[in-house]
Design a protein around this nucleic acid. Structure first.
Lengths: 193, 193
DNA sequence: ACACACATGTAATTGGTTACATGATTTC
DNA sequence: GAAATCATGTAACCAATTACATGTGTGT
């Protein structure tokens, strides 16, 4: 009952809002919905699907390949009752907080041992990444509203979006201040080492 | 030259600002400095130290135990030139962006399949965690200024702190709005499933 | 004919956590 | 002398990435 396998959770969740998806579909769905805060690789998805089917959490529903209908080889899956139960069970559990690891902040923390230009470069990259992400998120919001604005779960999707946007905006504001500070430092004097 | 082992990087960094630390010390130092955005476990630290010593990135410098001086068994390490070179090399590399995974946002995303009270609970927990973290960070800033305010790298440490504070504040503001929205939803009507 | 996107999977590797085992030293 | 803390380590396990292998259908 430990639920350490997070891939399982995303799959359960996505299949609960729309069944009959293949591994390939799931990956695309992930990228187009939770992609900005969640990633999955095929090497994780396919084995997990098989395992889950074996455990009765999902069922293989049609798809070409097994029956000789022709067409491209696809294996679709849908949630079972057991799967849905597992999903709600997982949702009710408190979030595990795995220790965060932010390589960007780590490099910045040790920025004093190298010339400031290096940290400046990192902050710039951070800023640009956030700018790109912000654009993506806004696009995602636009698309979502247009295509699923009337979906009963839309409000929750928007909630995650606004959370992302808030984080990004904060990051952007901070990065401006950080760049100003670093520019000052670069003018002022070299670091001790 | 891929530097996938991030534990190595923290160790290099920390030993560069202060040598003669044991695995135990390093853990404490981590918690008291980069702890709010970086975690390490003993099971990772000790083997990594051994490997790094074998590769010549660090050296075992004194500590009791090997020489029969008595006192508690401790193995201290310091950076070598090779270690310092590796550190600067790592610092100059662009940050790898490993796919993020935010279980909180994931649960919120699927909040529509369970009663709103569950999502409310998650957001509350998120909010409280952020409040606690904010207090920790402010304390950390106070302590740091008081003890290391004159250290040449202090400015960089503050930079990571302010980044953390900015993120947290944004999260807190968002959580208020989210709670308001969810409360509304709870009054209004049950979710579709 | 060729390239590209679709589609599924396996194998190797690793980074990391957790739990366990052990013992010394200080403190009460 | 018991408990807490200091201190180091090992073993088991697992989640996940990456690279590789394979084949089909579509568009040009």
């Amino acid at each position: 009952m430990s639920n350490r396998n997070q891939t399982e959770s995303v799959i359960l969740g996505l299949l609960s809002v729309e069944g009959n998806q293949s591994g390939y579909d799931l990956r695309k769905t992930i990228q187009g919905s939770v992609g900005f805060f969640w990633g999955e690789s095929f090497g994780q998805i396919y084995p997990t699907l098989k395992r889950m089917a074996g455990e009765g959490l999902i069922v293989a529903t049609g798809g070409t390949g097994s029956d000789g209908e022709g067409g491209r080889q696809r294996q679709l899956y849908s949630l079972t009752e057991a799967g849905r139960a597992r999903l709600t069970e997982w949702l009710a559990m408190p979030c595990r907080d795995d220790p965060p690891r932010d390589e960007f902040l780590l490099k910045l923390f040790f920025g004093g041992v190298v010339p400031p230009s290096i940290s400046i470069e990192h902050v710039r990259a951070f800023r640009e990444k956030n700018l790109r992400l912000l654009a993506t998120l806004e696009e995602l919001g636009r698309l979502g509203r247009e295509r699923n604005g009337d979906h009963p779960q839309f409000a929750f999707w928007m909630l995650t979006l606004t959370a992302g946007v808030a984080q990004i905006r904060a990051g952007l504001e901070w990065s401006e201040a950080a760049l100003a500070m670093l520019a000052e430092l670069e003018k002022g004097g070299q670091p001790s080492e």
